[in-house]
Design a protein around this nucleic acid. Structure first.
Lengths: 200, 200
DNA sequence: CGGTCAGGTTGACATTGTCAAGTTAACGGT
DNA sequence: ACCGTTAACTTGACAATGTCAACCTGACCG
């Protein structure tokens, strides 16, 4: 029964495209049960919503394990792309768990974050990146999350036709930026910076 | 009266910390008026919410004009920092206008986006950046927005104590990454990349 | 065979956005 | 000076929704 409720809730959520399409009455009706029965399986509406979304976030965790490769720096890129694809493919679940004030943490996301941090840490050891791995992970994650959440929430912006390519650009920008970050003088003038980069 | 409603609504919103602290009854009561009177000044709850948030977004537009300097590449950084500061200082209004499915565009944000695009375009002309200014602007904006929205929505993450410094890191990462992006071979191995960067 | 209990139902309540109908006060033209 | 129009506001109500208390029911176990 719990599963049927989750299925019904997920259908409503995805078809409605927004979390306020998820009403307890609609879920209960779709599962062929009376409204307050939902409370036998979930503490409240919020818990049901969370459960539905966490279920699909579990898939991302698997994707992350698949994406892990030998080269840690390339793994970072693969993680980021898998993450972005996931968010764009599951906009509602992404929004519910990551774009609203979160009471307690998203376990699946935390797990993915750990994998990402490990890859970054490894890249620090090879000397490609410098600095605190956790902070670097937050910076990279910020970049990718920013692209995903803007794409989801602001579709009217002048997005390029090929979103995957755009995300690629963001990942590339973030990765290269993280790598260069600590190797360039802190406050150069534009002219100096240009000279440095033109030498590449 | 319209102004008093806006003031009351803003108070509720900021003190409540969430947009569902904004109930028409509470707003009307705080403004000393009956509930349906709100409809004489705003089409519906959503319109009131939007009006409150847009009012403070107008301030950001002014900040952007102040932040504009002579060096376009440095202006980009100043814009980004002003933007992040604004978002962190006005979390509710930021969330309402940028982290929910937006029906029609945010005029103030669009205006800031234009200023940002202009600075980027100028940096392309000086040769510091390469590529489509609009796409570059979206990428940079994604990075900053990502940091802001994660900080707002996921406070339990292991954020460094100094948020301004963190934002600085993101801005730096994004800016440098954007500059390097097109000057580095498309798909280098980690070893090659390391060699290139170590030469910096 | 009787008690316990998980799973389910009915009926109700408070809160909320929203609307229709009525009221009041100001204001302008004849 | 009077009357009609209009804008601002109120009262009273409605429907939708989350949530809870009380009741029911069938299965399982000593």
């Amino acid at each position: 029964m719990r599963e049927e409720l989750l299925d019904a809730a997920e259908r409503l959520l995805v078809e409605g495209g927004s979390d306020d399409a998820l009403t307890l009455r609609a879920v209960a009706a779709a599962a062929g049960v009376s409204t307050p029965s939902v409370y036998l399986h979930f503490a409240d509406r919020e818990a049901l919503l969370e459960a539905v979304c966490i279920r699909v976030w579990g898939e991302l965790e698997s994707l992350f394990h698949e994406a892990r490769g030998d080269d840690p720096f390339q793994s970072i890129g693969r993680f980021a792309r898998a993450y972005a694809r996931f968010g764009i493919d599951h906009p509602v679940q992404y929004r519910v768990l990551l774009m609203r004030p979160a009471i307690h943490e998203n376990k699946a996301a935390a797990s993915c974050f750990r994998l990402m941090t490990e890859a970054i840490s490894a890249s620090v050891h090879t000397g490609l990146l410098h600095g605190d791995p956790r902070t670097l992970a937050l910076q990279l994650w910020s970049a990718v999350h920013g692209a995903v959440s803007l794409i989801i929430a602001q579709p009217h912006l002048p997005w390029p036709a090929d979103l995957d390519q755009f995300v690629d650009g963001v990942v590339r920008m973030a990765g290269l930026g993280a790598a260069v970050q600590t190797r360039v003088p802190q406050l150069s003038s534009s002219a100096e910076l240009k000279a440095v980069f033109d030498a590449l």
